[in-house]
Design a protein around this nucleic acid. Structure first.
Lengths: 138, 138
DNA sequence: TCTTGACCTTCCCACGATGGGAAGGCCCAT
DNA sequence: ATGGGCCTTCCCATCGTGGGAAGGTCAAGA
């Protein structure tokens, strides 16, 4: 029932966030300063671990640290409007979709070039031709 | 007919690669050291501009500098097998597809959560609920 | 009690690719 | 000759992450 008060290494193992990153999150203010033992060791409560898991999950979903800071503030604000959270999430989805579109365009261009490249021992290669003169040729 | 011998600023405007990046490419060895005037200014020939456009196009296609170094070497090797180029390109496509898949998974998860979030003035929010306890709840 | 090994601390450095900016030199046109 | 626009090098920042050194701490076993 009492807070477990684990060290940074145990917190890392319990949350999947590296000790390095836990310190970094503290240093940059994403998370508040951790409690310390008399000898200076950082100590984490169950609530701290909860926050670390929150951050980890948000990173897994591709949120930036800036966005995570916003989400954490909303999480701690019990009277937040769900609309505010949804807005952050949908902004992020739009960003993801934009990046997906860029990567898709690259992949399609390259696949198109690769299709036309016979890929044998001969030196002729439409891929290099495109890179070397792309703008002029098409 | 003669090589135009332009300055770095003109080379930048002619190729769309910033002067900063041209110097960086030289510093890291992606491109050979540029010719210099007596006073130390870098000087670029038409062949140099061609290489810069090659790099720019490859960057536009998302190739890393490491991959571009490989592609430049293949470009300069007139007896290369097109298969080698195709292999680099298809490796890169696979990498792009993998990254697209990751972003897609994030976007879909978030869209799924956002759908279930009514997004009004009330504080209840499945998005935050997922972040706060994701692993346990689903 | 002493040692040993695992842990913690802070501090610095690196990545990849890009941009910002300062301090100082160069070149050309007026 | 002077001014403005260009060039040079050098350092710093980004973002999120990892590596590693130097030194302190803690618990377990001899």
């Amino acid at each position: 029932m009492s807070a477990p008060s684990v060290t940074i290494g145990e917190a890392s193992r319990a949350t999947g966030v590296s000790a390095k990153m836990i310190r970094y999150y503290e240093e940059t203010g994403l998370l508040g300063p951790a409690e310390r033992t008399a000898s200076g060791y950082r100590v984490y409560s169950e609530g701290d671990l909860h926050a670390l898991r929150f951050v980890r999950r948000a990173r897994d979903l591709g949120f930036s640290m800036r966005e995570i800071a916003d989400l954490l503030a909303l999480w701690h604000d019990r009277s937040r409007a769900s609309a505010a959270v949804k807005a952050v999430a949908l902004d992020h989805v739009a960003d993801l979709r934009r990046r997906i579109g860029e990567l898709e365009a690259m992949a399609r261009s390259l696949e198109h070039l690769a299709e036309r490249c016979c890929g044998d021992d001969r030196p002729d290669c439409p891929i290099l031709d495109d890179l070397a003169g792309g703008a002029e040729i098409r």
